[in-house]
Design a protein around this nucleic acid. Structure first.
Length: 585
RNA sequence: GGUGGCGUAGUUCAGUUGGUUAGAAUGCCGGCCUGUCACGCCGGAGGUCGCGAGUUCGAGUCUCGUCGUCACCGCCA
């Protein structure tokens, strides 16, 4: 037996017990005639003591001990003379009778402490050491708790957890596929799933009625702080339901997770149409922790011979509360910020609403105090506020104002990580025009059903068709999305034709699904949550990396195992593959 | 594919208009220390300034290239 207790459980009630502990050496404090060793495991830290009464064998072992050695320690629990109130085991210590090195350790490249001195790169290279640290491990424990909550809730609601294949078929729609060559089928490839979409729909045809899976998905696209090439979804599908049924079920799941893992009660989720989100927040994933809504002031401000505004398709404004005192430098900073290529605005007009009721703007030449007063009324600005105005192409400006809104909220500290504001964004457009390929793309995916009342528009004005599609948004982060599916072959065929598929292409790529639908497909709908994002939000983090045990870096590399990597010629031969790497330049 | 930041001791960083022997903290090693818990005190070792070219009398510092890393845009049905 390696241990009788963990390093986190001993307390004053164990005094005089003989115990055996095992763990890692956190730190050694050598005071001369006595030495303290902090022994650490997953559960906590317990102090070991060596003093003049300790037998010499122990003292000898102690000599060679270093950080991160794995040791087994036997001894008697005793009450400390001076107690440490900061740790649960701080009232007791172990007077050692035996000490054994189970496994020595090289000096770690960074310190294994809550506030490590290690940079991201090193931590990733030695991820197994990083995972010894409390904050990182706690993130993964939170993740496990949340996964447990998901299963508890969905099992209770009669969902069947079902595994779907990882080696599937490549389709050109959507993100790039990761592909896997097939040895037994020369020249042919599997693809890793971007989501189990079609399988879960087939499970509905199979009569499973309610399905879920916590499942890895794969997308061969560039990474971000919140995007990894392999990531985890809570993937769900239900039969004989309408949109409201799905929203209700998964609002319930979300609330349950908040309550179960954070002890947080969140109120009912508002439902906001996509167009409202775009026009008021400049985003399809609005952060509703704060107001600062975008106001359309196009008609209000046109016609004063200010060419920039008069020639603009759209003029929008946000009101930053209490920012009238912004200095020239701060305003220039904001202007430069919106002019960066990422935002790409031409400029920024400001109006300061002074405390005395007067206005000071960057366009005083064109607008009177009375004009500006109307602007203030339109944007809800009061004395002390700052109005920020941008003009240009409508969609571009809504986007820019949306970004500006978030930036101002950051500056004003309005994005509290401890506050959670979930909402449903609904009524997404069914289709999205792609300039590059000159055709429509499915905004969600090709199996999303149009709103019944919009079906006639599919022939006349496809861009106007709204879908029975919905996103769960929390604090400006897209946490989940789903839709009511098409279960009628004729409507599905029409959808494929709108997306520019020939009958043959649709047959080749999705024939199995369309075939299945000919054998009695129930009405069904579903949703998928980005589990990594949800965990990182619960943990108050901005990156999903720290809630993934072994994440990849910005270039999609695992720097610990050093992958991806070349494979042997023999392997290529077996796969009948020949590399032809093109010179870059 | 693009834009920007960073790369200096084991680690985290500082390093002035280009100028003598490149610093700090922490970690590490040695010594002292009986109640520490970020122990304390004294001493010591530790550097291809990512790599390559260029400008210059002289480059950690300037220029170009390259590699690595991070953030963002494109991309992510």
């Amino acid at each position: 037996m390696y241990r009788t207790h963990t390093c986190g459980e001993l307390s004053i009630s164990y005094v005089n017990n003989e115990v055996t502990l095992a763990g890692w050496v956190q730190r050694i404090r050598d005071l001369g005639a006595m030495t303290f060793v902090d022994l650490r495991d997953r559960y906590g830290i317990t102090q070991l003591v060596v003093d003049e009464n300790t037998n010499t064998n122990v003292v000898e072992v102690l000599e060679e001990l270093g950080r991160e050695f794995v040791v087994q320690a036997k001894g008697t629990v005793r009450e400390r003379q001076s107690k440490n109130k900061n740790i649960p085991t701080g009232e007791v210590e172990i007077a050692l009778s035996e000490l054994k090195v189970l496994s020595p350790s090289k000096l770690p490249p960074f310190t294994i402490e809550d506030k490590t001195d290690g940079g991201d790169d090193l931590r990733m290279k030695y991820r197994y050491l990083d995972l010894r640290r409390n904050p990182v491990r706690e993130n993964l424990i939170l993740r496990a708790k949340m996964a447990h909550a998901v299963r508890t809730y969905l099992n209770l609601k009669e969902f069947i957890e079902t595994e779907t294949p990882v080696l599937i078929k490549s389709t050109p729609e959507g993100a790039r596929d990761f592909v896997v060559p097939s040895r037994m089928n020369e020249g042919q490839f599997y693809a890793l799933p971007q989501s189990p979409q079609q399988f879960k729909q087939l499970l509905m045809v199979a009569g499973f009625d309610r399905y879920y899976q916590i499942v890895k998905c794969f997308r061969d696209e560039d990474l971000r702080a919140d995007r990894q090439p392999e990531f985890t979804q809570i993937d769900c599908e239900m039969s004989f339901v309408e949109q409201d049924d799905v929203l209700e079920m998964f609002e319930g799941l979300t609330k349950f997770m908040f309550k179960d893992t954070l002890g947080v009660e969140v109120s009912d989720f508002p439902r906001m149409p996509y167009t409202e989100a775009m026009e008021k927040y400049g985003s399809d994933k609005p952060d509703t922790r704060f107001e600062m809504l975008i106001n359309d002031i196009t008609e209000t401000v046109k016609g004063n011979n200010f060419v920039v505004f008069d020639s603009a398709e759209y003029i929008g404004a946000v009101c930053a509360k209490g920012c009238a005192e912004y200095t020239r430098k701060q305003l220039d900073g904001l202007t430069n910020w919106v002019k960066r290529p990422q935002i790409g605005a031409k400029g920024l007009v400001y109006v300061k609403c002074n405390a005395d009721g007067s206005f000071k703007s960057s366009v005083d030449k064109f607008y009177s105090q009375d004009d500006l007063k109307v602007w203030a009324e339109k944007t809800g600005a009061e004395a002390g506020d700052l109005i920020l105005v941008m003009s240009g192409d409508k969609n571009h400006m809504l986007d820019a104002l949306g970004e500006l809104r978030l930036e101002m909220a950051n500056q004003l500290g309005l994005r509290d990580k401890k506050v959670f504001k979930p909402l449903w964004v609904v009524d997404f457009p069914l289709l999205e025009w792609d300039e590059e390929s000159k055709r429509f793309h499915a905004m969600h995916h090709p199996f999303t059903s149009p709103k019944p009342e919009d079906i006639p528009l599919m022939d006349t004005d496809p861009a106007k068709v709204r879908a029975n599609a919905y996103d769960l948004v929390i604090n400006g982060v897209e946490i989940g999305g789903g839709s009511v599916r098409i279960f009628d072959s004729a409507l599905q065929a029409k959808m494929f034709s709108l997306l520019g598929f020939t009958k043959e292409e649709a047959e080749a790529q999705f024939g199995f699904l369309m075939n299945a639908f000919k054998y009695g497909a129930p009405p069904h709908a579903g949703i998928a949550f980005g589990f990594d994002r949800l965990v990182s939000m619960f943990a108050g983090l901005d990156t999903i990396r720290d809630v993934i045990a072994f994440p990849k870096n910005n270039s999609g590399r695992d720097v610990m195992i050093d992958s991806p990597s070349p494979i042997a010629d023999a392997q290529l031969d077996e796969l009948s593959l020949k590399l032809d790497i093109k010179e870059k330049n």
